[in-house]
Design a protein around this nucleic acid. Structure first.
Lengths: 220, 220
DNA sequence: GGCGCCGCTGTGATGGCGCTGAGAATGTCC
DNA sequence: GGACATTCTCAGCGCCATCACAGCGGCGCC
């Protein structure tokens, strides 16, 4: 669950409450951060305040929808004018709640959203001309589907959740491989090799001594 | 649009307003009538009062959902206690509005519902050239009816509610089989085998290490 | 320019995943 | 009560993914 709320006390209360219900909760304090976290995917739903620093809730939703992310969004607003609600929903939010709201209602609406959201379009990770759909377990490179093995897929997924960042070999070993099992560090190199063969050599850069990084564009 | 509302003046106002927006509107004056009309299908959404003669709005939704009708439902209620909202949503309603409400908000929510509802949940599930009617327990493959056993049907139905997505073996065990009973994971493989024989081998893909997925098109 | 080390890749072993046929246990219909 | 359908377990098998290993190439440092 992703909570985007700048008011610290409310954010903390939401985090506590949702965690008590068994959700894993991340909090972002402004619209820009929220948008970026939502883009990375991995969330089942998002609770989004309207009045936010840097980027309003409206614009966050609109931007997400434009990028074809279908994450269920529950909007929160202190305003209670009618037109605000209409605006929020027409922007692409899935539900709307005005502050002050009751915690029970929030939960009920969240449950309703999740019930629906499950079959709505899942998040698709994309970076450059590579698209990865975790739900369908499909990968498209420049529009063509490539088939990956389980390990290859997990590796690519992990890298795509950190687009453009350098990820170290040990971090990959910890997250993509079972931490308990001791695997030779060389395995990472081996699978990076497999991946490169399938998605294109230049899309996955080596940063000597540091790790690997997804490359923005394939050299033409 | 189906409006179920016993208060004549409100019903008339809704009819007029919605017709002005270009909807074709039917009105039912009590829960029993509303349920029967909804069952017949053909509506894009339903506006449903909670307090109704003969059958409450809660029971109407619950009954509809039990019969696997996924018509989007917007609930209306004069009560504004928190728990009413929670109840309504948990019954299977898609949204909830308390009287008195503003017409602008009603329209916005209705639009949001239709956007989601239209493609999310048809009464007959279909994917590729496979159609499955949960109500009638019938399955058509490329126009031909195939007869499935109860377990086979449940398996296919679950997969068709996640069209194209990969569903893990444990998830299938939890939902298609009774979670309490301990069934050997191998049972899933066995029934996947049966299903493949009946609906065509290539319509159900194995994703090694992840689960199963309905395939888009049968290889010609 | 030389040397050392990091990273890449081809080969091959093995272990486990997924498929199938057989059959036992249970339920259902006549 | 008998015949049949359905569900599910079990064991065996084939194949593929995974991974260790070793040799090699190239980057970077001095």
């Amino acid at each position: 669950m992703l909570v985007v709320e700048d008011e610290a006390r409310l954010a903390a209360a939401l985090r506590r409450g949702l965690q008590a219900e068994g959700f894993a909760v991340d909090v972002a304090a402004d619209g820009q951060d929220g948008l970026e976290m939502a883009r990375h995917g991995g969330y089942d739903a998002m609770i989004l305040d309207v009045m936010l620093p840097r980027l309003s809730g409206y614009r966050v939703v609109r931007q997400l929808r434009a990028e074809r992310h279908w994450l269920p969004v529950l909007m929160l607003s202190a305003k209670d004018g009618e037109y605000d609600q209409a605006d929020g929903l027409d922007c692409g939010a899935d539900d709307y709640l005005t502050k002050p709201f009751s915690y029970v209602v929030l939960l009920a609406r969240l449950r309703a959203l999740l019930r629906r959201g499950a079959q709505a379009r899942p998040v698709v990770l994309s970076f450059g001309d590579v698209e990865l759909d975790p739900a369908e377990r499909r990968v498209l490179v420049a529009g063509d589907e490539v088939t990956l093995t389980a390990r290859e897929f997990a590796l690519l997924e992990y890298l795509m959740r950190r687009p453009g960042q350098v990820v170290s070999k040990t971090e990959l070993l910890d997250h993509v491989w079972d931490a308990a099992l001791e695997t030779a560090p060389n395995a990472v190199e081996v699978y990076v090799g497999y991946l490169r063969r399938k998605i294109g050599r230049d899309r996955l850069e080596t940063v000597r001594g540091a790790g690997y990084r997804l490359a923005a564009a394939p050299a033409a």
